[in-house]
Amino acid sequence: MGIQDAVLSRFVRGGEDWTPVTGGESRAAVLRSPDGASFAKVVGAAAAEELAGERDRIEWWHATGLAGPAVLDWSSDDDGACLVMSAVPGVTADRLDLDGLSAVWPHLAETVRDIHEVSPDRCPFRRDLPAMMQRARDVVGQDRVVPDYLPQGWRDRPAQDLLDRLETEYPDRLGDERQEAVVCHGDLCLPNIVVDTETSRVSGFVDLGRVGLADPYADIALLLASAREVWPDEDAGRGADAVFATRYGETLDGARQLFYLELDPLTWYA
């Protein structure tokens, strides 16, 4: 019996199976419990170590007092592993309409600031630029880039060209990170942010497998780019960026923002 079958049989209650969850870019199988109170993430043996890292990050995040899931159970065998975690109440921010995202946007900026203000000394995990650049070199070198993840202007060009451009900026960006490494979510896009629509406040963050110390723009760049898909035009997008900058408390650095927006898609394997 494979790990996924074992997990399903273990968590069946009253004849009701856990429900597969669709969407997202993870290669893991994600299942929701019949009562919706918890989720199980199941991977094969090749990804078991990575899932164990996510488990450890969730436990740290939760213990630190940041809003997100709690680890409920962990199981593994030669076929793979399963992580069971509590659900975060609310809806993911990618499901909000323009009014809904606009309402929560100021609180989201403040919440991201609060994450970034957690003392770096408390965080045992790293997502630093040397590691992410090496991952990008590996992905490009193995020809495993996912074209659909790339910024629009780069989808018809060789990924090596984009990597070469990033390499020229790497020394400057490494200097930025060494001066300002903070606790980052690591994949801060709208589907990973859960919102209480009654209060228009962030209720938590999910998909914590990339939590670690990094340049704050590793988060900021992804969040602002993800949100741009909701604002109706460029002026509205710039206005949202300005609100974010004011509530976050920093004048946005366009060069750092673009660097991390272009680096991130090179760090995901096809």
Rank of each mutant, 00 (worst) to 15 (best):
Q152P: 12
A136I: 08
V118E: 09
G80C: 11
Y149A: 13
S200K: 03
V140K: 13
P106D: 03
P106I: 03
C82F: 11
E167Y: 04
V112W: 01
V118M: 07
G186W: 05
A81G: 06
A81P: 04
P130A: 07
L98G: 06
I193T: 04
N192P: 04
V206P: 00
A131I: 07
L83Y: 05
L190C: 13
G175M: 12
V104M: 01
R126M: 14
L129S: 02
L98D: 11
G153V: 14
Q142E: 15
D94E: 04
H185F: 03
C189S: 14
I115K: 04
D99L: 12
D128I: 07
C184S: 13
L83W: 06
W74Y: 09
D172Q: 14
I193Y: 00
F125C: 00
M85H: 10
L96Q: 05
G141V: 00
R157A: 13
R144Y: 05
V84K: 06
R127P: 01
S119I: 08
V104P: 00
E167P: 05
S86V: 03
G186P: 08
Q160H: 03
L108R: 03
W105D: 03
P171L: 09
D164C: 09
W74I: 06
D114Y: 02
V139C: 05
A87Q: 04
G175T: 15
P171S: 06
N192G: 00
S200A: 15
A181S: 15
E110S: 14
H107R: 09
C82E: 11
A109Q: 03
E110Y: 07
L166S: 06
M133N: 04
Q160C: 05
A93Q: 05
G153E: 04
G141C: 10
V194P: 03
V139F: 04
D164M: 08
D187E: 08
D215S: 12
G175V: 10
C123I: 10
P158T: 13
P216M: 09
F125W: 02
N192I: 10
L190Q: 13
A214R: 08
D207K: 09
V104W: 02
P89Q: 14
V202R: 01
P89D: 15
A131K: 13
D97F: 10
A136W: 00
Q152L: 14
D138R: 12
A87G: 05
V84N: 02
G90Q: 05
E117M: 15
D97K: 08
A131Q: 12
F125M: 01
G186L: 02
Q160S: 09
G204E: 04
P124A: 13
V182N: 02
L101K: 10
R122T: 14
A103C: 01
H107G: 13
V84P: 00
